[in-house]
Structure formats: structure tokens, C-alpha cells
Simulated assay, not measured.
Amino acid sequence: MSGRAQIAGVILAGGEARRMGGGDKGLLDLGGRPILAHVIERLAPQVAALALNANGDPARFAEYDLPVIADADDTRPGPLAGVLAGMDWAAGQGFDWIATAAADTPFFPCNLVDGLWLGAVSERSPLARAETPRDGGGFDRHPTFGLWSTALRDDLRAALAEGTRKVVAWTDPHGCARVSFDGEDPFFNVNTPEDLERARAR
């Protein structure tokens, strides 16, 4: 089985979008289509199956014909809860890994999953995350763009029960591989109305 055949994709759409006035950022219009449509178009060819992590009524995503998986509880403890929901779904489908992408980030690399897979394999790590070089040195982390072994789902479940909320607080102790991606702000995400205008211009 090739690396890609072991990997399911999960789009994380669980944020509350407070800075956009609430609602689903992924359903905002970008170039005549919802941002989410652009995200699906980029991620689907990179994985063997695809699901959407979102809370609330799944019917609002019906047109995409994807499984919609909610967090395990309704306390909204952040992206790690979405990752866990994705892990549980993928493991139930027979997948060993999930690759995650945020629903409000329409320009991420088309080689995201291959890059993360190579990073995890080369470092023999059960986790990998995306980074971008920072002007002046160092890197910016993009922890919601990651590769996660489903074998760690019970470990993550326990960490969430103990109150862990920050992604890197859980990933880094596991020796998470760090994979750098270049390009013009590839992980630009739409958080504010101003960001949406920038994305439309881009």
C-alpha cells in the first residue's frame, strides 16, 4: 500500500468565526465559489478519502457530498477535537493516517500531503506539521495543516480529557516532524472581512 493510499483527508471547519461575525467562513464566496470548494479541490486529489469536521447541522454542507463528522462532545475545545474526530472516523474506515487542512485557507500547497508524508517517514515520526520560512529567519508554524497517525487517537483523547487545547502542546512531545513549504503565503487564511478582500484580490 502506498503512502497516499493510507491517508484520509479531514477539513477542519469547526471554528466559530467570531472575527467574521459568526457563521461558516468556508461558505463565504471567493471567486464565485465558496472558500470550502477551493479547499476541497486542493485536498481531494492528495488523499484517498475526504471528510469534513464541523459541528451543528450537517445539512448546510450537503452539496459537497462528504461525510460530516462532529467533535466528540459539544464543548468546542479547539482544533484538536476536530483532529480526534477525524482520527476516529478514518480509523473506522481502515486508514492509518489523516491529513488535515483548515476550511478557511484556500491557497495551501498542492503537494501538502506528499511533503508531510515524506517528512514523517524520513524522521520516523507519527506526526508532521507544515511550516513556512519567516523573513529574517525562523519559521511560522501552521499546526492545523498536519499529518497524524490514527494510532495516537487514544493518546489524544486522554490529553483532551486532561485539558490540553493547544495543538503544539500535544504534537511536539511526540517528536512531530516539521516540514517547510515555500511560496507566496501558502497558508494565508481568511479570519476577517479584510482578509476576504485580500483573498479575492489574490
Rank of each mutant, 00 (worst) to 15 (best):
M1D: 15
S2W: 15
S2R: 15
S2T: 15
G3C: 10
Q6C: 08
G15M: 10
G21F: 14
G23D: 13
G23P: 13
K25E: 00
G26V: 03
L27Q: 07
L27W: 08
L30K: 07
L30R: 10
G32A: 05
R33K: 13
P34S: 13
L36C: 00
L36G: 08
V39K: 01
I40A: 05
E41P: 15
R42L: 03
L43I: 04
P45T: 08
A48V: 03
L52P: 03
N53A: 12
A54F: 02
N55K: 11
G56E: 09
D57V: 09
D57P: 02
A59H: 14
E63N: 11
A70H: 10
D71G: 07
D71R: 05
A72P: 14
T75S: 15
T75V: 14
G78S: 07
G82S: 00
A85K: 06
A85R: 05
A85Q: 05
D88Y: 03
W89H: 04
G92K: 03
G94H: 03
W97M: 00
A103D: 04
A103G: 01
A103I: 06
F107Y: 01
P109N: 06
P109F: 08
C110S: 15
N111D: 12
L116M: 12
S122P: 04
S122E: 10
E123Q: 15
E123T: 14
S125R: 13
L127G: 11
E131I: 10
E131T: 11
P133T: 08
R134E: 13
G136N: 05
G137T: 03
G138F: 10
G138W: 11
F139L: 09
R141Y: 14
R141I: 09
F145E: 10
W148D: 02
S149C: 14
A151H: 13
R153N: 02
A159N: 08
A161M: 01
E162T: 04
E162F: 08
T164Y: 01
A169I: 12
A169M: 06
T171H: 13
G175D: 06
C176V: 02
R178Q: 14
R178S: 13
S180E: 15
S180Q: 12
F181S: 01
D182E: 12
D182W: 09
F187G: 00
D195A: 05
D195T: 08
D195K: 01
E197H: 03
R198M: 09
A199L: 01
R202M: 10
